[in-house]
Amino acid sequence: MGTTLGGCLLLLAGLLLGYRELFMLGAAGLTAVAVGTVWGLVPPALHVDRVVVPGRVRRGEPADSVVDVMARGRAGRLLSLHDGVWDADGKPASEAVTTEVFARPGLPTRVRLRLPTNQRGVFQVGPLRIGRTDPLGLWSALRPVGTAQQLVVWPTWHAVPASAIGRTAQIEATRDPQHTESTTFHTLREYVSGDDLRHIHWRTSARMGTLMIRRHEGASIARLVLLIDDRAPSYVDADSFEQAVEVAASVLVSLTDAGRRLAVMSASDPTRDPVTTTAAGLDLLAAARLTSSGVSDQRIQAQLRLRPLGDALLVVTGTVGDVTLAAPLAAKYHSVQTLELGPETRLDVAGAVIAAPTAAGMIARLREQR
């Protein structure tokens, strides 16, 4: 812009004052701008391949945008590469990653752009933009190439002893030969209105003085239901929620590594089918965001009663949440436990509620429970 304005002023001054030198200098400046404009507007002939490696990564671990660039034709080209990272709201998650590359004809040049992974989430990488500058440095242009790709940054996690989560007091838990191979007698629990009377264990009921029901479990049913509370009113601040997500990821990875089966679900959408694999659970936690969902504790409890997915329930929530969310479900689950994260911690409730201000503090508390 400055070169164009200066050239116009010199050209006008040369015409008005009769100075040929000023006129020629202004004309040269405008000619340079015109040549640079044509240079910038003509797209370079390139072949570009880009892939994000790996597509899923733990927070803090490396992830790269791998770009192969090759010039078409006989001449090489000096280019600049710009790769942006955008969050779920379409806002820049960080400054664009940039570098320069000389694209050679007939032979791809590979460049790795290190992507930021310092925060969890599901991000859009790109589209990749290629910049080109004219030889005089007067004009530059950026053009998008290809499509955007996804980068999933999982929350980080820490080792948690499996024995500290979902502990149950099993009563006469032996295999029932009356059931098929796909159904296993897991344990006994107290009778709840609506249970099938055929599953009453009369001998134990007589000894306990209350009706006891056989608890059967299919071969594929999850043993622990992990509920992450993603409702904003349950937390003091956003950092407390991040601590809760980190604890949930630690429980998920540690228990699946120990051979335990889990079902992971969010409080804001209790009717959604839970995820039952480690990768899918980490994807859910990576995408988890505080919501202003008006889902009540009663609705969550009703859904968990209607469709019990295991024999133990673990709720990860904030210190503002209702500590009694899981307690009414004791009739459906042999173990109900709540982990609360936040600065305003409350007293533990006989092991059923464990509170800590940070994820590191909660992990330490759980290790004490083993």
Rank of each mutant, 00 (worst) to 15 (best):
P343E: 12
R58W: 02
D283M: 05
A238I: 00
T3L: 13
L188W: 08
L30P: 12
W154C: 00
L11V: 00
R132H: 13
F23W: 14
F241R: 05
T345S: 11
A258H: 08
Q170N: 12
V97H: 00
G7T: 06
V97W: 04
R167L: 06
V353D: 00
G84R: 14
T180V: 12
R260K: 13
A312H: 04
C8I: 13
L329V: 12
Y333M: 06
L5P: 02
T183L: 15
H199W: 14
W202F: 09
L309A: 09
L188H: 15
G18E: 02
L12R: 14
E61Y: 10
Q170R: 15
A302Q: 14
A232K: 13
A34E: 01
V192H: 14
L262R: 10
R231S: 02
T324Q: 14
F23H: 08
Q369C: 06
G281W: 03
W202N: 04
L151R: 07
N118P: 00
D273V: 08
V57M: 04
V320H: 15
V38C: 08
L211N: 02
L25A: 15
Q301E: 07
E246S: 15
L227C: 10
H334E: 10
L285M: 09
I200R: 08
T99G: 10
G106K: 08
L81F: 11
R260L: 02
R20A: 13
E181D: 10
E368C: 02
R261V: 01
D83G: 03
S240C: 09
V33M: 11
P233F: 07
E181F: 11
F185R: 15
A27F: 14
H82K: 15
R129A: 14
D230W: 03
M208G: 00
A159F: 05
D230E: 02
S220F: 11
A71I: 04
R299K: 07
E21Y: 09
A93P: 12
Y333W: 10
G7Q: 03
R50W: 08
V225Q: 03
S335T: 01
A238P: 01
G121F: 03
T168D: 01
L211Q: 07
F241Q: 02
R110C: 05
S268P: 09
L211I: 01
A27L: 15
V349Y: 14
L284Y: 00
P233H: 04
L347W: 09
T174Q: 11
I363H: 07
L128K: 11
A350E: 12
L227G: 02
V67S: 04
V245F: 01
T109Y: 05
P44L: 02
I228G: 01
I165K: 09
D237T: 00
Q243K: 03
A238Y: 06
D64L: 13
H334G: 15
L224H: 15
L197K: 12
E368W: 07
A13W: 13
A331S: 15
F23G: 11
A355I: 02
P161G: 04
A263F: 04
L10N: 05
T204V: 12
D239L: 07
T180Q: 13
V247P: 05
A330I: 06
R20H: 11
E95W: 13
E172S: 14
G7E: 01
G29L: 14
A63K: 04
E242N: 13
G60F: 11
G218P: 09
A326Q: 03
D83T: 07
P155D: 00
L107E: 06
P161F: 06
A364G: 09
R299D: 05
G131R: 05
R50E: 08
